[in-house]
Amino acid sequence: MNDIYIITTAILVSCSCALLGCFLILRKMAMVGDAISHAVLPGIVIAFLLSGSRDSLTMLIGAGLLGVLTTFFIEFFHKKARLQTDASIGVTFTWLFAVGVILISVFAGKVDLDQDCVLYGEIAYVPLDTIITSSGMVLGPKAIYVSGFILLLIIAFIAFAYKELFLTTFDPAFAGAIGISTTLWHYVLMGAVSVTTVASFESVGAILVVALLIAPAATAFLLTDNFKWMLVLACLTGIIASIAGYYLAVWLDGSIAGAIASITGVIFLIAVFFSPLHGIAFRKVRASAH
């Protein structure tokens, strides 16, 4: 039963990440996603201190706010201080992450978070934290409910705001012309990324969530030219990586999140060479056929 719980959680997390990742890589904001996933750390710690528990809602709100703040900082340094984008991202997220690590060590006694968990999560412990009803019935791990809720939220968000997200991603000028605020949707999307990051934080940690955000989306980007298919394929990649990654980790007796990230990389590499549409191998074949 435990392996099913873990795989389910991994699948739910990777699908949320994959969906948002598609928007990130098309908006050339993959590294902003990376920055957010690191920068939410102080938000999580502060929410932890305020609520005194791993209560998910406070953490989601705290981290969501911090993610938006990160985006704001990056934009501010870039636009107002005219700092080049790469440096503005680098300075912002390292600073916030450092603050987060310091907060963890200052409140080491009060915060039930350790540094390793921050970097690569502890999905293996998912089955331990179950929801039990007052009558004693076991409803399954809490993480499944949280990540399932987030996935539903993300799907609803994309379905509801599909037109706005689509237009601001592909043709910001046109979106602006018909009255859709690019800035607003930029921040909303970043808020969604931060919320997802936090929800995935306990399971896969700050850095591996980046692999789930970028790798499946990048793989799907190589496989199709249709955006809706890209969303579907990204999720599929995430699902395959979750299942394969779990068994790889069991086989090697290592970190599950690390294994999932490794598998996403392998799948991406396969797509780079053998994608029917954009793969290097097929491009060579087509070139020689001409």
Binding site: K28, Y120, V210, I214, G254, S255, G258, T264, H278
Partner: peptide
Amino acid sequence: TRIKEDSAIGLVLSVFFGIGILML
């Protein structure tokens, strides 16, 4: 490939780190 540089950087750093964590 048609992957942009920022995506490539993010992808490589997280996947390499994932492999590293798995090995560690």
